[in-house]
Amino acid sequence: MAKRLVDLRAEAVEELVKINNIKDLDSWKIRFLGKKSKLAQILHSLAKLPIEERREVGAQANKVKMALESSLAEKRNTLQEASLLSSLQQDKLDVTLPGRPVSSGHIHPITQTLEEISDILRNMGFQIVEGPDVEWDYYNFEALNIPQWHPARDMFASLWIDTSGKDSRLLRTHTSPTQIRVMEKTRPPIRVIAPGRVYRYEATDATHESMFYQIEGLAIDKNVTMANLKDTLFELCYSLFGKEIRIRFRCDYFPFVEPGVEVAIECLSCHGSGCRICNYSGWLEILGAGMVHPDVLRRANINPDIYSGFAFGLGIERIPMLRYGVDDIRLFYRNDLRFLQQF
């Protein structure tokens, strides 16, 4: 009996080694471990044996059974791993093929810049307002200390709806009329920005457009000073051009502010040594600003002896032009998708 068990085990192991798929493994299991297998018969016949022999053979038979079951599990494991490996090898992709195109649109670079500047100033407490593109002479000029005869009108070549008369209409030449509209409606404290389109009677070329965008800023309260103006504009420039940028804060003239200010940053192209882009000055003018002229405040019924304020205006196109090296302003309104997709 013991001899039969030894032979049985040897036979089973020998067969198992030859097996290389799950199906054969299953029939092997039936043959050596199934209910009708030789091992089952031996176990079955144990009852007929004398007690002494029964214990000995029984123990041995159980040992063989456990050994075969363990070999079976091991073999099954090996076979499964091999089959997984082979399917992984078969189902591979050429990962270098291009992905499925996803169409997503781009926001126009001018809008992106407007939003970026608006966000910076919103964080400083400025609220966004909008004004009309078609304006009265009064808001665009008169209320801003630029009467009919004023030489500063030369700075703003205008596109007119009406050619004569005091109540003429025109396309606003700057976003500054929005200052007046806000001051007429709101009492201080005021802290607003007004983005929008402005228009000039101007021949277009690589650096001039007859339509462009500006953002106007206005802050009015008790004790608003030039130190506040300087800080606000420096923060804006640092946010836009980096903390390292050199800034020039100089006296300039705009009829509706006094004192007047112009802000320039060091040329991004030559860093101040002078090149074509900065017209060999080393500086790029970015902003016009100043303290709101007392006459402008008075006209909007704000008492300049109690309140003071600052205003500033900046052109938008210049900023993406400097940042990305766009050398022709007209590209922004030609709307070539090959251009727009780059932003």
């Binding site: 407490g125 802290r191 000073t225 030039m226 130190a227 506040n228 300087k230 800080d231 420096f234 006094e258």
Partner: peptide
């Protein structure tokens, strides 16, 4: 005021963050 400040120099103007009340 502008005359005085421009002769003294705008670069002498300090920076101070806006502290007025928010609308």
């Amino acid at each position: 005021i502008e005359e005085i400040l421009r002769i003294i120099g705008y670069d002498k103007i300090p920076r101070a963050s806006l502290s007025s009340s928010l609308p």
